[in-house]
Simulated scan of single mutants.
Amino acid sequence: MADLGQEDAAASFDPLRPKLMRVAYRMLGSVADAEDMVQEAFIRWMKADRSEVREPEAFLRRTVTRLCLDQLKSARRQRETYVGPWLPDPVVEEDEEEDVTLPLMLALERLSPLERAAFLLHDVFGLGFEEVAATIERDAAACRQLATRARTHVREARARFQIDKKRGVELAEAFYAASRSGDMKALGAMLAADVSVHSDGGGKRPAAVKPSFGFDAVMQLHENLAALFQKHGSKLVRAGFVNGLPGFVTLEADGELQTTALDIEDGKITAIYVVRNPDKLRHLH
Rank of each mutant, 00 (worst) to 15 (best):
150 A>C: 13
193 A>K: 02
156 E>F: 14
86 W>P: 00
170 E>D: 12
207 A>Q: 10
170 E>V: 10
107 A>T: 04
170 E>G: 10
180 R>A: 09
180 R>H: 04
156 E>P: 01
169 V>R: 01
178 A>H: 05
153 H>L: 15
146 L>V: 06
146 L>P: 01
98 E>L: 09
118 A>S: 06
89 D>S: 13
161 F>K: 08
155 R>C: 10
201 G>V: 02
198 H>M: 07
196 S>G: 10
116 R>T: 06
130 E>F: 08
83 V>N: 05
141 A>M: 05
133 A>I: 06
109 E>W: 02
90 P>R: 14
189 A>W: 00
183 D>H: 00
118 A>G: 01
173 E>S: 13
79 R>M: 13
86 W>S: 14
132 V>I: 08
93 E>S: 14
100 V>K: 05
150 A>Q: 12
88 P>G: 14
95 D>K: 14
104 L>K: 10
185 K>D: 15
171 L>G: 07
138 R>Y: 04
106 L>N: 08
195 V>D: 07
130 E>R: 12
95 D>S: 14
136 I>G: 08
145 Q>W: 00
136 I>Y: 06
160 R>T: 15
167 R>H: 09
95 D>Y: 08
182 G>I: 03
203 G>D: 00
132 V>D: 03
171 L>M: 14
168 G>S: 05
134 A>V: 09
191 L>H: 06
162 Q>F: 13
149 R>K: 15
128 G>I: 07
162 Q>K: 15
144 R>A: 11
80 E>G: 05
192 A>E: 03
178 A>V: 07
82 Y>C: 08
189 A>M: 02
144 R>C: 04
105 M>A: 10
145 Q>K: 01
187 L>H: 04
168 G>C: 05
211 P>R: 03
94 E>L: 14
156 E>C: 10
146 L>H: 01
125 F>C: 13
193 A>R: 00
180 R>D: 02
105 M>R: 06
147 A>V: 11
147 A>W: 04
109 E>A: 14
207 A>Y: 09
102 L>K: 07
174 A>R: 10
200 D>P: 02
150 A>N: 11
140 A>Q: 01
191 L>C: 07
207 A>M: 11
146 L>S: 06
151 R>N: 13
139 D>Y: 04
114 L>R: 05
147 A>C: 12
136 I>M: 08
137 E>Y: 07
141 A>I: 09
182 G>W: 00
174 A>V: 03
160 R>Q: 15
186 A>F: 09
118 A>W: 00
93 E>V: 05
84 G>Q: 06
95 D>G: 14
207 A>W: 09
158 R>Q: 15
79 R>E: 08
194 D>G: 05
111 L>S: 03
106 L>K: 10
89 D>M: 11
163 I>D: 12
109 E>V: 09
102 L>T: 06
117 A>H: 07
126 G>T: 13
190 M>L: 06
87 L>W: 03
177 A>E: 03
100 V>T: 13
115 E>G: 02
184 M>E: 04
118 A>D: 03
124 V>P: 02
143 C>Q: 07
197 V>N: 09
96 E>D: 11
175 F>K: 05
160 R>W: 08
108 L>M: 12
198 H>G: 00
91 V>Y: 00
202 G>P: 00
104 L>M: 14
173 E>A: 14
81 T>M: 15
102 L>R: 07
81 T>A: 15
182 G>E: 01
181 S>A: 08
109 E>K: 07
